[in-house]
């Protein structure tokens, strides 16, 4: 039963503290995504679970066994790296077999396992090729295949999609999701800075900022009830509008947050009046940037097409039940939290 528990885990590089007292309990078979801006410590946390970085203080337990001093290969973990890290001089088959050879498995067993993994990822026709003869997407699949053959309890992904182009990224995201469905007992930890990947893949998301856990929750919990202004701004695209001044102060808060999709736009009546700066039409949505005097710039997302010219005068009405209020520390104002 591969649960992962991090108890008061901290990490320092010399005098620099990178992670501060991380406490997390990951359930077996769960798909957990660590997300945060670059430099927040998410990759370091993953590498500590893998055993590639020492744990400065605190305890790591996998399946309830202490793992701080266990060698990476003995933790029952496989890892997929950002740059794939395939062995360039080995064929796809040898790449996938290398770990099994190190584990001293029999030849027949190795061939059997590699073939099974290759079939699962449609790599069978490529087994004799070298990595440089493969496309980016195929290399990524080999990297995943290499990780699967070892039959790990825990699967770690370190930004595996960031080297792929946009179209391939969506396909591979789907494949990873399918992989997780096919290996329901394998706990997966996935690191990304892309909140869309986090939202689509995760059972639960861990938002990290500056070496601290900001919030842990399902994607919808984070979207609907962000525990801080940081999470509110990080999750959701386009970004939530943060408005300061009278709008916020009238509710006893320093910051009034409203997502672009929770504002209604109208030509003739509404709470705020402003001028359109720019409108971006994506076909499925239209993003309208409106300059509202005394409030500032407000982004609005309208479903479908919405013809409006720059300079036109419009009225905006925020949906008050979807609004968020934050105090000076970026925390939600308790009395105003939506249930």
């Amino acid at each position: 039963m591969a649960t992962i528990d991090l108890i008061n885990v901290s990490k320092s590089f010399g005098a620099v503290d990178v992670l501060h007292n991380i406490n997390l309990a990951l359930r077996q078979g769960e798909f957990v995504v660590f997300v945060g801006p670059s430099g927040c410590g998410k990759s370091t946390l993953l590498r500590m679970i893998a055993g590639l970085e020492d744990i400065t203080s605190g305890e790591l337990r996998i399946a309830d066994e202490p793992m701080n001093d266990v060698l990476p290969a003995k933790r029952g973990i496989s890892m997929v790296f950002q740059s794939y890290a395939l062995y360039p001089h080995m064929s796809v088959f040898e790449n996938m077999a290398f770990g099994l050879e190190q584990a001293k498995l029999s030849k027949a067993d190795i061939i059997d396992r590699v073939n099974k993994a290759a079939e699962m990822l449609q790599l069978t026709p490529l087994l004799q090729r070298k990595p440089k003869q493969l496309s980016g997407g195929q290399r990524q699949r080999v990297a995943i295949g290499r990780a699967i053959t070892r039959d790990p309890r825990v699967f770690l992904f370190d930004e595996p999609l960031s080297n792929l182009d946009a179209a391939l990224r969506v396909d591979t995201r789907l494949e990873i999701k399918t992989l997780h469905d096919r290996l329901p007992d394998t706990t997966m930890v996935y690191v990304t800075h892309d909140q869309v990947e986090a939202m689509t893949l995760a059972d639960r998301i861990v938002v990290l900022n500056d070496g601290r856990v900001e919030q842990v929750g399902t994607p919808m919990e984070l979207y609907e009830n962000p525990a801080s202004q940081f999470v509110a701004g990080f999750i959701g695209s386009p970004k939530m509008n943060f408005l300061t001044g009278a709008v916020a102060e009238s509710h006893g808060a320093t910051c009034f947050g409203i997502r672009p999709e929770h504002i209604e736009i109208s030509g003739d009546a509404g709470d705020w009046q402003g001028k359109v700066i720019l409108s971006e039409e994506l076909g499925s949505d239209t993003f309208v940037y409106v300059d509202v005097p005394t409030i500032g710039r407000v982004n609005v997302r309208v479903a479908g097409r919405h013809d409006v010219n720059a300079g036109a005068s419009v009225f905006l009405t925020p949906q008050s039940d979807s609004a968020h209020y934050f105090d000076a520390n970026g925390l939600p104002v308790a009395s105003l939290v939506q249930s």
Partner: peptide, 27 residues
């Protein structure tokens, strides 16, 4: 040489000497 290749070998359970012999030397 990318460090990640070496880390992949560590994850695969290779010892330092094996990493030199099987991964670094050929490269």
């Amino acid at each position: 040489l990318p460090v990640e290749i070496e880390e992949a070998a560590i994850m695969d359970g290779a010892s330092s000497l094996t990493i030199i012999r099987r991964v670094f030397l050929p490269l």
